[in-house]
Design a protein around this nucleic acid. Structure first.
Lengths: 226, 226
DNA sequence: TCGTGTTTGTAACATTTGATACAAATTAAG
DNA sequence: CTTAATTTGTATCAAATGTTACAAACACGA
């Protein structure tokens, strides 16, 4: 049981709060523990969300159900992270996806009214929660923005211009594999590789796997358009 | 000045809080008022966000700057609504867009530390704020979900399935012209028309301008996939 | 060192979409 | 009723992307 509080120290919602403080906050038994085995349904699409849920052990995958039986995997949530923080509040308190246990899973549940009490008792927990939702929104905003570009070339050009600023260099090291970047852009992985290859052929950049050298910054920016 | 508190009663962040309570909460002078004229820049892309800002009068538009001088309008925020609630917390405390006054605009500013104090002083304000961010996230999740469909057929099919529920009928009246719907979907107008025509050829629907009759609901849903 | 799994770079081909153009149907305004 | 503007339905063609497949480079652990 002690282990649980140690696990929570690494959870974004409890960042900056010591294990003993966490123990004190939760000591009034305001929580439940749930166990799931591999393949178990942790929650079903449209289930009502009445409690904050934190994955303590194992990982859970979000899936969209398909009428023909197939499923589309949306994302993985690994311990020690919370589930659906942005759906505990707001108008639609229902799971947007199915949640399935990837392996043996332990989940901590704290009912919504108790979460509000925790907010009052610990300011850090509150700001952590606000940060968690906000980060989610920021991630989605960014993703939507990327999808708003018409062509893959534009997405790449914009991404590189952005990274040039961030890394403050004309040689950029990509932090993600192409597969993940393609996912962020909402395009197929080989299409992304082709995009890079085309920009290289046209003399805008020089590509060596994860290392991108910007040869024509102005040209690149004019491709991105914005 | 009294008018301000009355205006705030209609702001989602102060919902359920009376004008006099709002006055009490804000009486310690923890706020600033800013005036802008039509066309004034309220905030610039990448400006740091250190305060909660609420539009009290007029409206503000979010725009993405273009290097060639053009701008792309993202959205309008009208009084009495807050600006960028999801960017006051989280990792990226910077405006994602330029904000330009549409007309004469009054904006209320409350510094971030004071916002946190308000959270402690008034539980309703806190839950309102949580709801505001959460609703934003939910909206974006939905929009992203919509854009995540690969083909136009899938978008149309999903849209129609949704409208069937909303209008509770197997005959759907489209409320927008194709041009606007195409914009929402992020596709070209003739491509959208072609999408409808194809679904008609295949016997899923019957199209008569704005009136769509669903002939094969199950088939349509299986096209949408999810 | 070797094998195994992952990542990257390409290629060929089919599919989807965008761009453009135009006619017919509809609506709005006079 | 007439005319003009808007909306819809189509067609054609080019461009962009997805799909599938495979080989080479790389990373990592046994």
């Amino acid at each position: 049981m002690e282990k649980m509080f140690d696990l929570l120290v690494d959870c974004p919602l409890f960042r900056g709060i010591s294990s003993t403080e966490i123990e004190q906050l939760l000591k009034n038994n305001v929580y439940q523990l749930k166990h799931y085995r591999k393949g178990d349904l942790v929650a079903v699409h449209d289930d009502e969300i009445t409690a904050l849920q934190i994955v303590l052990m194992g990982s859970v995958k979000g899936e969209m159900p398909d009428l023909s039986g197939r499923v589309i995997k949306i994302e993985d949530i690994e311990a020690p992270r919370p589930l659906a923080v942005a759906f505990l509040f707001g108008q639609q308190n229902r799971f947007p996806v199915d949640l399935v246990a990837n392996d043996e899973v332990k989940i901590l549940r704290i009912a919504k009214p108790d979460v509000l009490l925790l907010f009052q008792q610990n300011k850090r927990f509150l700001t952590n929660y606000l940060n968690a939702i906000s980060n989610r929104t920021q991630f989605l905003t960014r993703k939507l923005f990327f999808l708003s570009f018409r062509t893959i070339r534009e997405k790449i050009a914009f991404y590189l211009a952005e990274q040039m600023k961030l890394q403050n260099s004309s040689v950029i090291i990509l932090s993600q594999p192409q597969r993940e970047m393609a996912e962020l852009f909402g395009v197929a992985r080989p299409s992304l590789a082709r995009g890079f290859a085309e920009l290289e052929d046209e003399g805008f950049i020089e590509v060596d796997r994860r290392e991108i050298k910007i040869l024509n910054k102005e040209g690149l920016i004019s491709i991105a358009g914005r």
